[in-house]
C-alpha cells in the first residue's frame, strides 16, 4: 500500500512536472529501506512501463525521430551493459551503495541547482515585465561534423552518428547505475548538443528510454538478481495513475513556478542523500549474505 502510494506521489509529480520519476523514486525507495541495488533495478523496470505509456502518445503524434532513437539506443544498450557490469563489480566489493548515493548527490545537486537558477531568472524577469530570451548556447558544430554523418529527416539534421552514440552510451550507463530513464540528461543533450527541434525531443527520448531501461532490467535480473517484479508492479500501478492526475493539475500551474518547485524537491533529496553519507550512521556494520554455508 505504501509502495502504491509512493508510486502515485512520484507519478503525480512526474505527470505534473513532465519529467520521468526515476531520479526521485529511487532515492525515496532507498529512504524507506529498500536495498539500493534492488531499488535501482526495480525502478528501471517501472520506467519501462511509464515510458511505454508516455511514448505511445508521441508515437501517435508522429513526434519521434526513429532513426535518431535507434542510434541513441545502440549507444544506450552498450552503456547499460557496462553500467550493470560496473554495478556487479562494485557490489562484490561492497561499494555499490556508495556509487549509487554519490551519483545521485552529484546529479541531483547539479541539475537541481541549474533548474532553480533558470526558473528564478525567469520569474524575476517576468516580474520586471521583460520578455525572456531563450539562450542560444555556444556552437558545438565541430562535434556534429565528425565522420559517419547521417541524415535525420524528422529532426531536419545531417550530423555525425558519433555524438548520439556517445550520449546514448553515457545515459545508458547512468540508467544502469541510478535506476533512471535519463531523460533529464538526454533532453538537454538533444537540444543543446545535437540541436534537435524541441517537438521531437521528448518523444525520441522516451522511445530510446523504453529499450534502454528494458535492457537495464534484463541485465540486472541476469547479473545481480536485484529486480523485484512485485515491487516494480506496485510502483507501476501507483505511477501510471499518479502521472495521469498530475498531468491534469500541472496544466493549471505556471511553468517556471513548477520548475522552481521541482528544483527545490530535487535539491532536497540530494541534500538528504549527502547528509546520510556525511553523518555518522547509527550502525556502522552492514550484513550481506554470501550463500548457504555448511
Amino acid at each position: 500500500m505504501t509502495l502504491i502510494g509512493m508510486g502515485g506521489l512520484v507519478g503525480f509529480m512526474s505527470g505534473m512536472f513532465g519529467v520521468g520519476g526515476g531520479f526521485l523514486m529511487t532515492p525515496l525507495l532507498i529512504f524507506i529501506g529498500v536495498p539500493p541495488a534492488v531499488a535501482v533495478a526495480s525502478e528501471a523496470n517501472q520506467i519501462v512501463a511509464s515510458s511505454v505509456s508516455g511514448g505511445l502518445a508521441y508515437w501517435q503524434r508522429r513526434a519521434i525521430d526513429i532513426p535518431m532513437g535507434l542510434i541513441l539506443m545502440s549507444g544506450g544498450l552498450a552503456g547499460s551493459y557496462s553500467g550493470v557490469q560496473l554495478f556487479k563489480l562494485l557490489r562484490a566489493m561492497g561499494q555499490v551503495d556508495l556509487l549509487i548515493s554519490l551519483s545521485y548527490v552529484v546529479f541531483l545537486g547539479v541539475i537541481g541547482a541549474l533548474m532553480l537558477r533558470e526558473s528564478i531568472q525567469v520569474i524575476i524577469a517576468a516580474r520586471r515585465g521583460r520578455p525572456v530570451q531563450a539562450r542560444r548556447p555556444g556552437q558545438h558544430s565541430w562535434i556534429l561534423r565528425l565522420p559517419f554523418r547521417m541524415r535525420f529527416r524528422r529532426s531536419k539534421l545531417y550530423i555525425s552518428v558519433i555524438p548520439p552514440i556517445v550520449i546514448g552510451y553515457f545515459v545508458g550507463t547512468l540508467s544502469a547505475i541510478m535506476g533512471v530513464g535519463g531523460g533529464f540528461i538526454m533532453v538537454p543533450a538533444m537540444i543543446y548538443i545535437l540541436r534537435m527541434p524541441t517537438n521531437v525531443v521528448i518523444g525520441t527520448s522516451l522511445f530510446q528510454i523504453i529499450f534502454v531501461t528494458a535492457s537495464v532490467t534484463i541485465f540486472h535480473a541476469v547479473e545481480n538478481q536485484t529486480v523485484d517484479i512485485v515491487l516494480a508492479a506496485l510502483l507501476m500501478i501507483g505511477g501510471v495513475i499518479g502521472a495521469q492526475l498530475g498531468a491534469r493539475v500541472g496544466l493549471r500551474l505556471r511553468g517556471e513556478q513548477l520548475r522552481a518547485l521541482l528544483a527545490l524537491i530535487v535539491l532536497g533529496v540530494g541534500v538528504k542523500l549527502l547528509l546520510d553519507l556525511v553523518n555518522q550512521p547509527d550502525e556502522l556494520f552492514s550484513l550481506t549474505r554470501m550463500g548457504t554455508g555448511g
Binding site: 523496470n45 517501472q46 519501462v48 512501463a49 511509464s50 515510458s51 511505454v52 505509456s53 505511445l56 523504453i210 528494458a214 532490467t217 534484463i218 535480473a221 529486480v227 517484479i229 516494480a232 508492479a233 507501476m236 500501478i237 501510471v240
Partner: peptide
Amino acid sequence: GVALAVFMGW
C-alpha cells in the same frame, strides 16, 4: 518483468 511493464504501460 519487461513484458509486464510494456503491457501495463500500453
